[in-house]
Design a protein around this nucleic acid. Structure first.
Length: 303
RNA sequence: CGCGGGGUAGAGCAGCCCGGUAGCUCGUCAGGCUCAUAACCUGGAGGUCGUUGGUUCAAAUCCUUCCCCCGCAA
């Protein structure tokens, strides 16, 4: 098929790669390069880089509401457009530009977790499974009928990063299947009574609040690993917590209960034993390594 | 030139402001002690203090070149 692909971050890369091998990708739409990274250099999106390397035309409009943009889009005369974490709202003119419409690869089991951060929210909420949904794009956000869903389990070892990679790969596979049998598959409408929304991750919520139960914080730590990474502050320094486990200890909320060979911090219910930690300016490392050279004051209380 | 921290023994850190014998915790090796231990004691090996040039009687420490890593921010 002749396909126009629309995507931006790493999640979309495996999907585009697969499309390029199996179909004709006539043009790629992605978010415009923006200042990013240390030095704030203008940085092209992962999808942008990939498309360029493969000699595919790349377009980076700031909006698709513009009539000229819409005309240019339609002029590509593709069969279908495929969206994977593009980052722009698609107006009706774009969605309906091609004969087969527009389909989306979404990283959740819709109708659960519509929205921007479905991967992390599923882990954070304690879901036992996540997955990929291939659905029709409609004007309402992530509300289109679903062609196919595939489940990916969430275990106690599942981090946001791991699940992200699993879903990106799965997404490429499932999209491939759907496109191969596109005429035979009938989409199923979403059950609106089961909808939940995965709001964007914010910096503020990445800060560990020890007034919450250890179990809740452990899930957040896993969900937010590696990005944006849960953290606490000690002596004005930021410590990212990459992994931790719940232990039955008691004390004041936020108190450092142990800081010799292990690091245990008391929470509202039970406590967290920190396993992997990253000191500001340093690389991530097992807690035991940090504690060989760095001392937390025993009994200090974190806010 | 967006802001900032860092590169010191195999690991993690201190020392740097206020130049003057390279230090801590751990690991490692040897020996000792113990019924026993990720226990304890004793002793040892292991560093061109990231790189270049400079200042100085003397540089890990002050100034400088370049390389690399990371936090913030996006």
């Amino acid at each position: 098929m002749k396909i126009v692909f629309m995507g931006t971050p790493d999640f979309a890369v495996p999907v585009l790669k697969r499309l390029m091998t199996e179909h004709e990708v006539v043009c790629v739409y992605t978010r415009a390069p923006k200042p990013a990274g240390r030095g704030k250099m203008l940085l092209k999106s992962p999808v942008h880089e990939l498309a360029e390397q493969n000699g595919i035309e790349v377009r980076t409009p700031k909006t698709l509401r513009d009539a000229n943009e819409q005309a240019a889009f339609k002029a590509l005369n593709a069969d279908i457009s495929v969206v994977a974490a593009y980052g722009l709202i698609l107006p009706r003119e774009i969605i309906e530009a091609f004969e087969l419409g527009c389909i989306n690869v979404h990283a959740s089991l819709l109708p659960r977790w519509r929205g921007a951060a479905p991967i992390e929210r599923a882990i954070e909420a304690g879901d036992t499974q996540s997955g990929i949904s291939i659905m029709q794009v409609v004007e309402a956000l992530d509300a289109g009928a679903v062609y196919k869903k595939v489940i990916v389990p969430i275990t106690s070892a599942t981090t946001g990063g791991i699940l992200h990679d699993q879903l990106a790969t799965a997404g490429a596979d499932i999209l491939s299947e759907v496109l191969a049998h596109f005429n035979e598959i009938k989409p199923t409408a979403q059950d609106e009574s089961l909808v939940t929304y995965a709001t964007k991750l914010s910096k503020e919520e990445a800060r560990l609040n020890f007034n919450q139960p250890a179990e809740v914080l452990e899930r957040k730590i896993r969900a937010f690993n590696p990005f944006p990474a849960a953290y606490f502050e000690y002596n004005g320094e930021r410590f990212k917590v990459l992994s931790a486990e719940v232990v039955k200890e008691q004390g004041k909320i936020g108190q450092i209960l142990k800081a010799d060979k292990e690091l245990v911090i008391c929470c509202a219910q039970e406590a967290l034993r920190i396993l992997e930690i990253q000191r500001q300016g340093k690389k991530p490392m097992p807690v035991a390594e940090l504690l060989r050279g760095f001392r937390f004051e025993d009994g200090a209380v974190l806010k």
